[in-house]
Amino acid sequence: MSNIILEIDNVQKSFGGLKALSDLNLKIEEGKVHAIIGPNGAGKSTMLNVCIGQLAPDSGTVTFNGENMIGKAPHEINQAGISRVFQTPEIFPDLSLLQNVMIPAFARQEGAFKMNIFRSLSNENNIQDEACQILEDIGLIEQIHSIAGSLSRGDKRRLELAMCLVQHPKLLLLDEPTAGMARHDTNKTIDLLMKIKEGGMTKIIIEHDMHVVFSVADHISVLAQGTIIASGTPDEIRGNPKVQEAYLGGAHL
């Protein structure tokens, strides 16, 4: 049995009368790619919001590497080793691609605050090289000096992925990382995700595209109405009638 890196225990979250998460329990094994699938409004993004400190749950705990994350500030959770790709890309639209990737790299190297007023940015060769390498892997190296806000939606997503990867997080949360991408780019992104899978980074990936899910996931959990209704290997999930009913209205996966 391998190590549990993230444990979500009995988490509840309501918005007014709406129960977005109810009795949510989930264990994520270290080094695995864990896919979360489920219909729109099932609470998938809300679950990630709780994990990164964006939302405080009504009750329940989230334990990362043996440490309780509830009540911590978002930057502390990131510094603990969790990075997230958002459902709508969160990048720095006014900065260049290179700067977009260098900033998360600094966060990893320097921590939450450092007052290096008199160091010159152009002397930061290590960080710059690393950022370039990631941008090359992700296929954005040609546009390295363009303004991130001018990218297409799909490219913004890939940039955001690069921003997370450069941090070498212990746990990477991906909220529909290929939505809005052309098929060709989707495949490239999957290839990249497979490549870093070998690196041992744990990933939680929320995805509607079953092609993506079944090609990258080691483990799949199905979330419906704020709770996990099934969990297992891709083959187990494929054959589970409960899943087919909840998720695809009876259609075959």
């Binding site: 990131n78 720095f92 006014d94 700067q99 600094f106 940015l121 941090q167």
Partner: peptide, 24 residues
């Protein structure tokens, strides 16, 4: 032109992203 300066620009550009990128 320092790393500090570029982080300030990043705060202007998207403070939310800064927080989830590990910056106080």
């Amino acid at each position: 032109h320092s790393p500090f300066g570029i982080k300030l620009r990043a705060i202007k550009s998207n403070q939310t992203r800064m927080k989830y990128t590990g910056y106080s």
